[in-house]
Amino acid sequence: MKKTVSRRNFLKGGLAGTAAVAVIQNKEAHAAQSFEGYPEGMGVLVDLTRCIGCRSCEAACNKEQELPEPAKPFDDYSVFDEIKHGQKRRTDETAYTVVNRYDVPNLDHPLFRKIQCNHCQEPACLTSCFVNAYTKTPEGAVIYNSKVCVGCRTCMIACPFYIPTFKYSSAFDPRIMKCVFCYDTRLKDGKPPACVEACPQEALTFGRRNDLINMGRQRIRETPGKYVEHIYGEKEVGGTAWMYISSVPFDQVGFDTHVPKEPILNSVKDFLAIVPMVLTIWPGLFVGFHLLATRKEKIKEQEKEDKEGQV
């Protein structure tokens, strides 16, 4: 009799203890699924051979997104010489996009590269956010909802391109600041983002991502020797909506050519895969250990009880 009671108690406790786990288990089932991006989404093809570093795109972005006044005018090109921590300019809470100059050895003119959110097909920021603050829209934009963001800044860790920035200067209303492809004001109405519209050189070509890849390939194919044969972003981190073509190897113009070819989520999948395993195997395994480890005691107890029974 005593034995059954203790077993029932154990079960009860076990259930109480693992109920919460079971709840989560369900949700984690989603975790392993991946998100493929929208094939019909829009994108931008950036052609480094066309960009002249005029910073019109920066100015247009600042205006469109109502960002604060810059430290220097947008037609001040001394910003290209700014170096902080040995790094060229990057996005921050006042700028969603910046243009940098690269002096490439053996090239008689500098090259310029505009950076902004690349609007990944399977965005690392999105998959790493534990409150689902990011959304990849069918139009291709990766947008952000500041209403639910907790400010953990994991998205900034996860973004392979160092794009999301945090409003560190604010204690009461901080948020992530990042390019949203002008989603609310333009993209969702079928219009190109402000930077694209402002670019005099059409260094930024807006279009359907699939078309852009064909365009990029055509440009590379039909002007032999002008470009390196690679569209940066076609495959990088599972593909990005913003892609680049360049006349020099990408690592010479500040691109990280070591980012994984697969979506960032894939490197996390190993761990996500073990989660259901641990949840299901561990309880049985450890109960087994417990029974094995305490068998001798149980036998002793049993013997004792038996003896008492005989007396």
Binding site: A31, F130, V131, V275
Partner: peptide
Amino acid sequence: VSLGPAAVLFLVAW
């Protein structure tokens, strides 16, 4: 309020 169950941090939090 807003669940992001595919995230590792979600698992940590829970």
